[in-house]
Design a binder for these strands. Structure first.
Lengths: 188, 188
DNA sequence: CTGTTACCGTAACGTCCGTTACGGGCGACG
DNA sequence: CGTCGCCCGTAACGGACGTTACGGTAACAG
């Protein structure tokens, strides 16, 4: 039952990545999941709950990925770089994820619950980057640490948005170079 | 006739800012413009052309605004800062514009013509920032200049996206601090 | 083996969408 | 002053949407 919800949420991601927000209909999600709209409406109360669940699950997966990146890196500065790298879209799969994020961001306009989820998720990520930045640059004043953490998060978000729409201008090399440059500037 | 198209495009921006992409219907645009769908379909061949025209006009206005900011600033570094500032969303009106940009970005998924317009507009802006950065930091190698220009553009884009959804976490002060910090780091 | 229940596919309903066709009003020109 | 032609509001059409109600089927209990 819970695995059905998860599979449907994955179908939501798939449809969003492929057809964008306008193509995200209950029928399209059902077809992508290999079932009918009946199952979708039995697993969720409606389209809204389907979207919210898919959004929440996406954040959970992102948090797990960030945890893994943090655990797999050696040294404070390297941990910060690893977390920012995994949040960017350096692979085709990452670019898909970026398109999904953009679609959810657009869906949050006019849907207060989705907007609240987005805000919360983003603040969690900002706090993570602040913590990693504090470990990587302990001497940085608190005010500057907050500014630079938000800058790093905004840089990653911007790279995601831009690379999702124009991969040629923002290839993986350009993104990693930008991130490395920004981390170097932020920790000095 | 052309002024009708412009007024309809303004109505598109207004609806996008207020209701997001899901609320952007021909009827909603007509109501916002104070006319009926008949006039809309006489001014444009269909919904698609309406969106493309509104997107192109938005870029023209943004370019004019950037020109004005560039002309009104004294000194190379200050010109760069001024252009980046006017591209961010430091005012309520700017936040509206940011929401419109996000909506157009989401609409570009699954609409190749809108995506092409977005890519072109963004590359124009990247080149502008590269030129300003070259004037502000003439000694910067070409490769690093390209990386940092893209970083600055991505930072602005990220600030727009994040502030559009969460103005409390990204107030005007935080954005200007992030931009000033980034310009200082990029020109040194 | 039979009855019951939970699950989910099927089909339909009402609404709203983009688009089209039609008609009336109004200025231009003979 | 009459007539023609152009705008644009009105109304309707076909289709797709979210949602709901119903029916069949398979698994489990007795």
């Amino acid at each position: 039952m819970d695995s059905q919800r998860e599979q449907l949420s994955r179908a939501v991601w798939s449809v969003l990545a492929e057809q964008g927000l306008p193509g995200l209909t209950v029928r399209a999600v059902a077809e992508r999941a290999g079932c009918t709209t009946g199952l979708v409406m039995h697993a969720f109360a409606g389209r809204h709950e389907l979207l919210v669940h898919a959004r929440r699950l996406l954040h959970e997966r992102a948090a797990e990925s960030a945890d893994a990146a943090e655990a797999g890196a050696a040294g404070p500065a390297e941990r910060l770089r690893a977390v920012l790298r995994q949040a960017a879209c350096l692979t085709p799969a990452g670019r898909e994820r970026a398109r999904v994020r953009v679609a959810f961001l657009a869906a949050a306009a006019g849907d207060e619950e989705l907007a609240a989820v987005h805000r919360q998720n983003n603040r969690v990520f900002v706090r993570r980057v602040e913590r990693l930045l504090a470990e990587a640059a302990p001497d940085l004043p608190r005010a500057q640490r907050e500014v630079r953490a938000r800058s790093l998060v905004a840089l990653v978000e911007g790279l995601n948005c831009l690379a999702a729409a124009d991969p040629a201008t923002y290839p993986a090399r350009a993104q990693t170079a930008a991130l490395d440059d920004a981390v170097r500037a932020a920790t000095s």
